[in-house]
Each structure stands twice: as C-alpha cells, then as structure tokens.
C-alpha cells in the first residue's frame, strides 16, 4: 500500500499546476503522503463499518423486505454522489486547503457516528408505518449528511494528489486503491470479528474513533507543516 504511494517516480508535479498557496509548504510536499495512505485507508475502513451497522439498524425499523433494502442502499449512493459533487466543487479552487477540509470532514463523520444509532432509533420510532417512498425519504435524510461527507473525501484528496503528481489516473488509482482496500478490510473484519465481538453500538464507536483519530492525525500533520 505504502509502496504504491511512494512509487519510484519522482513526487514532483509533471505539469505546472501546483499552487504554492494551496497548502502549507510541507503539507503539500512529501510529508503528507506518508499519512495520506493510512488515513484514507482508515477512512474507507470506518465508512464500511458505518454502512454495515446503519443498514442493519435501518432494516430493523423499516424491514428487510427488498423494497426497504433497495431504498436504503440507494439512499447511501445518493449521499455519496452528492458528496462527490460537492467535493468536486470545493476542489476547483486550488487555494482551498484540501487536507484541512479532509480533516474537518473526517471529524464531522466521527461526531455524527457517535450519535447515529440513537438518532436512527428515535427517528425510526417516530416514523413507523411509512410506505416505501416514506422509508426512502427518511433513510435518505438519515444518511445524507454522513454519506455526503464521505463522498466528498475522494475528489478533495484527488485534487490534492493531482497537484502533487500531475497525473490523474495515478492519483485516482492510488487513492481509490487505499480507500477501497480499507473498505474491503472492514468487510472481512466485520464478518470475522467486529460485529460478533462489538455488536452494533461498539462497531459504530470503533468507526467514530477511527474518524476522529484520522482528523487528529491530519491536524497534527498540518500543524507541523505550518511550524
């Protein structure tokens, strides 16, 4: 994984697109790359844990029939898509700090994660008996904020990586790789250990802890960069 991100090619942009105002000098240099891989891996890991638990919690309230399953899965996708667009809009201006945005997004996801299960429980109890459309709307509203935030992380970090490498395919491939690998690892962890040992609440707490840890780590890197 790290070998992928520190491939033998020079970590210097090959097209003159890097804006020195985009990030503090060292944050836009080599240093953050050591952190980007593990933090984006952790981000993908926690996202999949949330998805596993939130879907399960929503199924408990809205049923496991295929109509509920489909609308809940689609609601996740809508959130990720909306987030991707917002992240793309944000990343258009190279002066905007990509890593700081990523840090804040991760912190927000973690904070939402901590209150997510009680929120789903309360909303689920208040919206009993809704039809397929109602289930879809409520599910969408419940997961919209966190999934939008999750969806925004890829384009924000891609913009950051392209400024470093000047290569879109490599940037997307590398980031998509570590993030998806994190999600794959979370799937296996959920199947073999996490869900059976931690239950739903414990799994969400683990995911939130990872998000907040990522946010803390990135903020420390940014502070070091400014120092």
């Amino acid at each position: 994984m790290r070998a992928t991100l520190s491939a033998p090619e020079p970590l210097v942009p090959e097209s003159p697109v890097m804006d020195p105002l985009a990030e503090p000098r060292s944050a836009a240099g080599v240093l953050p790359l050591r952190w980007v891989a593990p933090v984006f891996f952790a981000s993908g890991f926690s996202a999949l844990l949330y998805q596993t638990v939130w879907q399960r919690a929503l199924f408990t309230h809205y049923g496991t029939n295929v109509e509920s399953v489909t609308v809940i899965v689609t609601a996740f996708m809508v959130g990720l898509g909306a987030g991707s667009l917002l992240g793309g809009v944000y990343s258009r201006d190279p002066r905007r700090p990509a890593l700081l945005a990523f840090c804040l997004v991760e912190a927000a996801i973690g904070l939402f994660g901590l209150v997510s299960l009680p929120l789903i429980e309360k909303v689920g109890a208040l919206t009993l008996g809704m039809g397929t459309l109602g289930t879809g709307v409520v599910s969408l509203l419940l997961v919209l904020v966190p999934t939008t935030l999750m969806g925004a992380t890829l384009p924000v970090l891609v913009a950051f990586a392209v400024r470093l490498w000047g290569n879109v395919g490599r940037s997307v491939g590398a980031l998509y790789f570590v993030n998806t690998l994190g999600s794959a690892a979370a799937s296996f962890a959920a199947a073999f250990f996490v869900m059976s040992h931690l239950g739903q609440a414990g799994t969400v707490q683990l995911a939130a802890g990872l998000n907040l840890g990522v946010a803390l780590l990135v903020s420390l890197v940014l502070r070091r960069g400014r120092a």
């Binding site: 991707s84 667009l85 990343s91 258009r92 384009p155 913009a159 950051f160």
Partner: peptide
C-alpha cells in the same frame, strides 16, 4: 491533469 481535475473526477464518480 489541471486544476479542475478534482471536479471532473467527481463527475465520473
């Protein structure tokens, strides 16, 4: 690979 790469990748995503 220009300054709008992040935005365009978001369209693909």
């Amino acid at each position: 690979a220009d300054t709008r790469a992040g935005a365009r990748v978001s369209y693909l995503y």
